[in-house]
Write a protein that binds this DNA or RNA. Sequence first.
DNA 1: CGCGACGTTGATTTGCCTCAACGATTGTGG
DNA 2: CCACAATCGTTGAGGCAAATCAACGTCGCG
Lengths: 193, 193
Amino acid sequence: MDHTLLLSAIAKHISLEKEEEEYLIQFLHPKKIKKKQLLLEEGEVNSKLIYVTGGCLRSYAVDKNGFEHVLQFAPPGWWIGDMHSQLEQLPARLNIDAVEDSEIIFILKPDFDALLLKVPKLERYFRILGQNALAAYQYRQIDHLSLPAIERYGNFCKMYPSLIRTLPQKQVASYIGVTPEFLSKMLNNAIVK
Amino acid sequence: MDHTLLLSAIAKHISLEKEEEEYLIQFLHPKKIKKKQLLLEEGEVNSKLIYVTGGCLRSYAVDKNGFEHVLQFAPPGWWIGDMHSQLEQLPARLNIDAVEDSEIIFILKPDFDALLLKVPKLERYFRILGQNALAAYQYRQIDHLSLPAIERYGNFCKMYPSLIRTLPQKQVASYIGVTPEFLSKMLNNAIVK
DNA sequence: CGCGACGTTGATTTGCCTCAACGATTGTGG
DNA sequence: CCACAATCGTTGAGGCAAATCAACGTCGCG
C-alpha cells in the first residue's frame, strides 16, 4: 500500500493532523493497471480522481476520422482526468489509458467531495494543484498558437526529458500535434542541419 | 465602488461571515481601463490578480515575427492573468490589455496570499475557479489538436456568442489560431454553402 | 477632412498531411 | 522457441489547408 508519494506531495503544501491523514487514507484506492488498459472511455462520466504512482498514463481524444490526439501524459506524481466531466458529472470527451504497466491511486468523486468538506485544508492543496496545471496549459496553448512544430517538439523535450526516452515517437507526435511521419522527417532534417 | 459582481460570484460557492467579507473588501482595488491600455507586459512579473467587472480584456503573446496570439478574452465576471508568472513571480510571457474601455477589480499578489491564510474559505472558491478554468483549457486544447479551423470557429461562437458581436474579427481569428485573411475567406465560403 | 484600423480578395507559397510501401522490432500464440 | 502478426519508424510522391504578400475599399475617429 503505497500512499507515501501522494502524502508527501500533499505535505509540501499543507500539514495534516494525524487523524485528518487517516481520514484521507481510507478513501485512497491503489490499483495496478496493465499497458493499454482503459481507465476512462469517451462517453462515460469521469467518476474517479486518478493519481499516478508508477508507470505512465495518458489522456486523449479521438476525432471523427478515428485519429487519437494526446492531451496529457501522466508519469508518477501527476493527476489525470477529464476535468469537465469530473466537475459536471457529464459524459467525457477524453479517454484515459496506460502507456505502460502502471500503478495508480484513485479517489471516488463522492468521496472526494466529502473529503473536502471534512478536511478543508485539502482545498488549499487542490487549489495550488489546479493553478499549477492552469499555468502549464496556458503556456502550452500559447506554444501551439505561436510556434512551428519543430519548436513545440523542442519545448516538449525540455519539459519532459524522461518521457522522451520511454514514449514511442508517435505518441509524442500526437501530443505536439503532428503526424508521426512528419515528426520523423523533421527530426532527420534537424540532424543534418 | 462596485464589488457586488465579484462578491455574489463568490457567494455562489461559499458563504462568508460579515467580517470576512469586510476583510476581503479592503484588498479590492477598482480601476478604470482605457481601450488598448496595457495591464501586464511581457517580461514583467504578474503581481496582480485581475477580475473584470465591465468591458473586456485580453491576454496574448507576441511571437518572434511580431504577430499577436490571443490566449484569452475576459468579459465581465472573468479573471485574467499569466498564471505561471503569478505563481512563481517570474517574468510573464503574456501581455494583457483592454479590447474596449473596461473596469476591473485587482488584488495585489501579497494581499492575495495573506487573504487566503486569513480567510481559508476562499481556498474553496479559488479551487473551484481553477478547476473550471482547467476544464475549459483542456477542451480548447483538444479542439486545437483535433478540429479544422472552421469548426474551431463554430465552437468559439457557441461558447462566447456575446463576444462575436463586439470583437473585431481579427481578434477572433487570432484566438482560434488562423490569420484574419483566412478567417474572412472561410466565412465567405461557409455562407455560399 | 485625412489617417489608421479593419475586412476583403486574389496570386502564390509552404508547412504539414495523406497514402503507400518497406525494414526492423516487439510480442504472442502455437 | 519459432513463426507470424502487430506495431513502429522511415522514406517518397503528391495534395491540401492555411500562410504570405500585396492591393484595395470602407469605415470610424481625431
